[in-house]
Simulated assay, not measured.
Amino acid sequence: IMTGGAIGSLFAQRFKLSAAERKTLLVAGAAAGMTGIFGTPLAAILLAVEVLLFEWKPRSFVPVVLAVLIALGVRPFLLGAGPL
């Protein structure tokens, strides 16, 4: 989860995005990391939005959902479909 968040934050810093966009990408990376490891997309989205973002705005909700869906799609190829 921390690695996913760090990757999101580094991406935002690299492209010189605003603080709000950096926070959104950090949370999206953390949610994607949680989905990738635990295979729990709904829990990752809810945790990210309720605990980390504190808002239900589309500008922050959509990137989190996209990151989670991508992580869910890539997970079977990297780790297999079963539990860790």
Rank of each mutant, 00 (worst) to 15 (best):
E55H: 14
T3H: 11
V64G: 03
G39Y: 03
R75E: 00
M34I: 12
V74S: 02
M2R: 10
G82H: 14
T40D: 03
L47N: 14
R59F: 14
F15W: 13
F15P: 09
I45Y: 06
R22W: 09
G80E: 04
G8H: 00
L26A: 10
A31C: 14
E55Q: 12
L78D: 10
A81V: 13
L66W: 06
A71V: 02
M34A: 07
L78I: 15
T40Q: 05
V62A: 07
I70Q: 09
G8F: 00
I45N: 04
F54M: 15
A31R: 07
G33K: 01
S9W: 10
V64Q: 00
V51D: 08
A81I: 10
A48W: 05
P41D: 02
S60F: 05
L53N: 09
G82D: 12
L17K: 05
A19C: 08
G82Y: 13
P58L: 15
G80D: 02
L66P: 08
K23S: 06
I37K: 08
F77W: 11
A30T: 11
E50Y: 08
L10Y: 06
T40H: 04
V64W: 04
F77T: 14
R75N: 03
G73K: 08
V68E: 00
L25E: 01
L10T: 03
Q13S: 13
A32M: 05
G36F: 04
K16F: 09
V62S: 10
A44S: 01
P83C: 13
P63E: 01
L69Y: 08
A30C: 12
G5F: 00
L52Q: 09
P83E: 15
G8M: 03
P41L: 00
G5V: 00
E55G: 08
L25K: 06
M34D: 05
V62R: 10
L47S: 14
K16N: 12
V68R: 04
A44W: 00
L46W: 07
V49A: 04
L84P: 13
G5K: 04
L72R: 13
M2L: 12
P83S: 14
L25G: 04
K16A: 13
L84K: 09
T35N: 04
M34L: 14
A6N: 12
L53F: 08
S9R: 14
G82F: 11
L53H: 11
I1R: 12
F15V: 09
L69R: 10
L84Q: 11
L26W: 06
T35V: 03
